[in-house]
Design a protein around this nucleic acid. Structure first.
Lengths: 320, 320
DNA sequence: AGTCCCAATGTGCAAATGTACGCAATTCGT
DNA sequence: ACGAATTGCGTACATTTGCACATTGGGACT
């Protein structure tokens, strides 16, 4: 991992470079190292997150959109980023920052948090600042995707988050999706998997992303679990999106096909029973998926940006 | 101050540079600016703290020293940095990180925090990470020192902290020390000053440093309020240190001279009545001052490093 | 012992960055 | 309206940084 003496050296070098603004040469002289060595330590300090860059976005929340979302969908809390003039670069990072602050504020020593996969989740975890005081255990809520971008995989997300929150990581050692319903049942009956799922069910908070079923971006498709045609079939049958691998329809009902049963992870009912479920999603293309997700009654706290919030609210009223 | 569009631009540039690791040239091309402009924006982003470097020190606490401090001095909580092999560079920064985490953990929306001056306080405030969710108002607990290093002055500390905690800064528009007891009374009777002090008294938490009365390092001396000789006299009369400008003796009694009455700020009694007072101090030279400070009964939460904690405990038992 | 392999360290150079200087635009005072 | 002062911006150059490549110095296995 990262031994304590090394960690200290990395921190020292990073402090001298970034905080005291010494040159690499000066640091090398001070610590009796070569400049290249200092350069490499700095690089490592960044990659190991010994130094973190915290950007203070002029993050303003759009409170009237927040209250409208809360009222319309019965949310406990909504966090909506007020959109600003500049292009949407880093919008996700900013929304994730909102979500991360919520986590930091609401997690307490001894709590358990469960997480699943996805870019949004990744960004939230990334925005959680290290140095959290207390110990929060982190449980993986759905199985791993072998084909996924490694860093976006739920196992590595679990690990990173647990490290930041000073707790223990509990992995769900299973593929995200079994090849058949029967196989899924067998997997679920394994003691380790059962135990991990049970632990996840008793978590005090969950962090989930919302996926749409677009063949181009879906992790399902990328992982090879579902072909484009299957996704299209599911959409035709009413599926609009997924949370933690569970597909739901526009009115928030769990999708009826065998698909959901093949996924190894928490079910929508499990999530619904959880004290707090936080979800993050942005993007016009996700409007329908978000709408369905909000109708499931699973989500307690929802983070998004102003544009998405407005689109979701517009789509919601349009129906009726 | 910093208008919103500029702030956004600074954040954008800082994000592209530090997080996405683009070169200044690339950023310039992307945003249609010259490279030098980007360089200047980056410089400004650093100076305005739009970007912050958070260093993750390998901070380990020495829990048995913590419990001994708590028991010996009746503290609610003690935070003691475990000393490690490396030289004591950045020890203060690390202790400050401990203190800052405590603040972040314990401050809640709507609370009021009161702060005073000193390098330790400065470091704690520096280590508080921006992006706190909620609004904590910050009140200046003692008057300003005109001669002090500007950034260590209590007014600017108040401003910076308020910005980080998303609250309003309330200044105590007065010099730290009046020229005579009578003048101090006049100053204190001013409506604005009265109001600020009253606000400070009702704060839910206070952050104070501990000064020793060493002519070489004392802010009093540097500010020209007290000559070296006066400091020596005070020490001879039993004064061992100060908190928020109030001098106390080794047994924790307020110093009896006129000095304390000339200071415009909270009194020790005010601090004693406060729900939570956090204090930070390190260094062998401060042992006696810290001992006195702990005996005042003012401090509820004390942060320091292992060496200082050990020295203080040793000195405490030695007396009896 | 030999030799293969890996990791750690140093060298040299091209790219990126920091800054002094100068020019233009704008503000401010008279 | 005029000039002084200030600010903002770009050019040019010195310094600093990133990185590809060479070198060294051990283990580990034969």
């Amino acid at each position: 991992m990262l031994d304590d003496a090394t960690h200290d050296l990395l921190a020292q070098v990073a402090a001298l470079y970034y905080e005291d603004e010494l040159t690499q040469d000066a640091i090398a002289a001070e610590l009796g190292l070569s400049r290249v060595k200092v350069y490499r330590l700095l690089k490592q300090a960044r990659s190991e997150q010994v130094i973190q860059f915290t950007i203070n976005w002029p993050v303003q929340r759009a409170s009237e959109l927040e209250t409208r979302l809360c009222q319309r969908f019965g949310l406990r809390e909504a966090l909506v980023l007020r959109p600003d003039s500049s292009g949407h670069t880093h919008t996700l990072a900013r929304v994730a920052q909102l979500g991360a602050r919520f986590l930091e504020q609401n997690l307490r020593d001894g709590m358990t948090l469960t997480v699943c996969l996805g870019r949004s989740t990744y960004e939230v975890i990334h925005a959680v600042r290290p140095g959290f005081q207390g110990h929060v255990n982190v449980v993986q809520a759905v199985g791993s995707i072998s084909q996924a971008t490694p860093e976006l995989d739920s196992a590595s997300l679990t690990r990173e988050l647990a490290a930041k929150l000073g707790g223990v990581a509990h992995y769900l050692a299973a593929p995200m999706m079994a090849d058949s319903v029967a196989a899924a049942a067998v997997l679920r009956s394994q003691r380790d998997i059962q135990r991990a799922l049970q632990l996840a069910r008793t978590a005090s908070m969950a962090l989930v992303g919302v996926g749409n079923l677009d063949p181009a971006t879906s992790e399902f498709a990328r992982a090879g679990y579902l072909a484009a045609q299957e996704l299209a079939d599911i959409r035709a049958a009413g599926g609009v999106g997924d949370m933690a691998g569970q597909i739901f329809s526009a009115d928030g009902q769990a999708y009826d096909g065998e698909f959901n049963s093949r996924v190894i992870g928490l079910r929508l009912d499990d999530l619904r029973a959880m004290p707090a479920v936080m979800s993050i999603a942005i993007g016009a293309s996700k409007t329908q998926a978000i709408l369905g997700a909000l109708h499931t009654g699973v989500i307690d706290v929802f983070c998004t940006d102003g544009d998405t919030a407005a689109a979701v609210l517009a789509a919601a009223t349009q129906v009726f």
